[in-house]
Design a protein around this nucleic acid. Structure first.
Lengths: 165, 165
DNA sequence: CCTATTTTTGTTGCACCGCAACATATATGT
DNA sequence: ACATATATGTTGCGGTGCAACAAAAATAGG
């Protein structure tokens, strides 16, 4: 994949090619699902697309709003089920600190934890695949006999963009 | 302080002196509040005591149950306000991944982040003051111009106790 | 000491988050 | 085409968290 990029993925640039970034991610999702014999149904795809269209985490009910067209509102449970599926496939992550969900733009090669950098100002979320962070956590855990399993680490703060402004 | 201990605090031993551990923490809270000219009111103290009595994170409503005596139930908002106060003083942390709260048994000298190791089996929470983890996160963040502010990092997994069993 | 002001607690009410249980529809395998 | 598995729709509800206003308690100032 072309977008695999360096060790540390950065915040999505305000000017990046959204259209392409989203369609690439959808393509990736299709590959993943096909390989696992899972079904990326229309509903699931719509949820993923909605998340991809926003580089911010979306709450389940906000997601419902965005999926609504002409009075046709998917029920909460419907969206939650799609989210459950997408999370199982590691195509979407839940941001615990915000009760919200975000599409994963990172290639989950291994089961390494992902570090999310969440901007308190603008709400943007940067995804950082940091082996270093994962390692120190593993070491610190092992020191007390703890076996870590967390897939997601959330760090809130201020992004470069907002700090400048 | 005698209990300041090594770099890595461990899980509370099943046989440790709860009574003393709690009263020490209360004493510490009083010192902190006095120094800051904040008021550790009866309500706030009761909430802190309830959390200290459990070495597991408690949900707000479970906390209410435990604070209830003879039909006198504090309203949710009352407990949430006490929790807000205690969190401001960094005497209590919120465990996002569980919608729950836990008393801090760690001396927040600096504003270093605290790492919680949460056992998926028994629910116990170990508090680890790991400078190494804090540093790698700072470094990884700085690499993308992000200024981290998270006070808490949550790692779920299996504790040594449960792994053995 | 008494009053004015600030701080804390109580009351009422509600919005949001997340899912269980069951019914229906759609896809898949044979 | 049929039986089976999988996915979606319907109904309904419980947990979480707080806003807005009212009352009570503590603190400061004269």
């Amino acid at each position: 994949m072309a977008r695999k990029s360096s060790a540390l993925t950065v915040f999505p640039k305000p000017d990046h090619d959204h259209q392409r970034c989203a369609s690439d991610a959808i393509a990736h999702a299709e590959v993943i699902c096909a390989a696992r014999k899972e079904r990326l149904t229309p509903m699931r795809r719509r949820v993923l697309e909605a998340l991809l269209a926003s580089h911010q985490p979306l709450g389940a009910y906000e997601l419902i709003d965005r999926l609504s067209v002409r009075g046709a509102r998917p029920a909460p449970i419907t969206v939650y089920r799609a989210l459950d599926f997408l999370r199982d496939q590691e195509l979407v992550h839940r941001i615990e600190s915000r009760n919200a969900f975000i599409a994963c733009v990172h290639n989950h090669q291994s089961s390494d934890p992902v570090v999310f950098l969440i901007c308190e100002k603008c709400g943007a979320v940067g995804e950082a695949a940091s082996a270093a962070v994962a390692d120190t956590i593993k070491n610190a855990s092992r020191a007390v006999g703890f076996v870590p399993k967390t897939p997601v680490i959330e760090i809130s703060g201020i992004c470069a963009h907002c700090k400048a402004a």
